[in-house]
Design a protein around this nucleic acid. Structure first.
Lengths: 132, 132
DNA sequence: GTAGACCTTCCAGTGCGCTGGAAGGTCAAG
DNA sequence: CTTGACCTTCCAGCGCACTGGAAGGTCTAC
């Protein structure tokens, strides 16, 4: 698979794929005789893992760390676990924060739903957002 | 209250507070006769809202938009609501993503917990992180 | 044999959210 | 009257995650 195909399979731009390689979240791929990057099918899974990890708030550096630990397959279990546990509690904290935000947002949405639209048009104070 | 006190009350650096003012997430404060910024006590709440909103993944621009809608108190209920609803579903999507990540992370942590530590020290493949 | 889609490298720029440092003003305590 | 903590503005730089563009090579189809 060439970079363009990997890009369209995953929705990640070729530029970004090269950038990921440079920063270490993707391994250096093989090359065709013409110099084009050649990817194995499992690159799709790896790239999707990267995007999901990003969506979960991990930085590229952190993702690279996790994947390099796996790729090296060295005696890093202890560090790996400490790292993973630290991230797990980060993620849990982020979830808690987001749930607080969700609560606030739905209160605001509810409030805006219940308002008489007529009140909105005559320069009354918009009541949807509570005093902060 | 001067900027230093607001900073120590909230844990946000004075530099950052000025920066927030510049970008519109904090209103332009009054000034003392000597030119120092003068903050009302409710600035603490506002600043804390900003930090919580940030922790929930909103950008400063988005936070500014929400707070400006409230500050202007104009006929923006409809837009406000659309905006809030869009954000609510963003936040819900982020929560879902984080929960997927939490699942993956705890599987990895569990796996690393169950491993025989002896296996980690002799260059065996670290099994904590599943193939990606 | 040429057009067009694809690939390569390299370097520069962008947007976000700060952060540092220079140069100077204000004020209370010793 | 000076020291030191605090404040002011302004401008520059940084880390992150891309993104754009130039200049050129490769391959297929017509």
């Amino acid at each position: 698979m060439r970079i363009g195909e990997l890009a369209s399979e995953t929705g990640v731009a070729p530029k970004t794929i090269r950038f990921y390689e440079e920063t270490g979240v993707l391994p250096v791929p093989q090359r065709d005789t013409n110099g084009y990057r050649k990817y194995a099918p499992d690159s799709i899974d790896r790239l999707e893992f990267v995007r999901q990890a990003q969506a979960a708030g991990l930085t590229l550096k952190e993702i690279a760390t996790i994947l390099e630990m796996r790729d090296r397959g060295e005696a890093t279990c202890h560090h790996t676990r400490a790292f993973l546990e630290a991230h797990l509690s980060d993620v849990e904290e982020q979830i808690a924060e987001l749930e607080r935000m969700r609560g606030r947002l739905s209160v605001m949405v509810e409030r805006s739903r219940d308002l008489d639209p007529a009140e909105c048009t005559d320069r009354n104070r918009c009541q949807a957002i509570p005093a902060v």
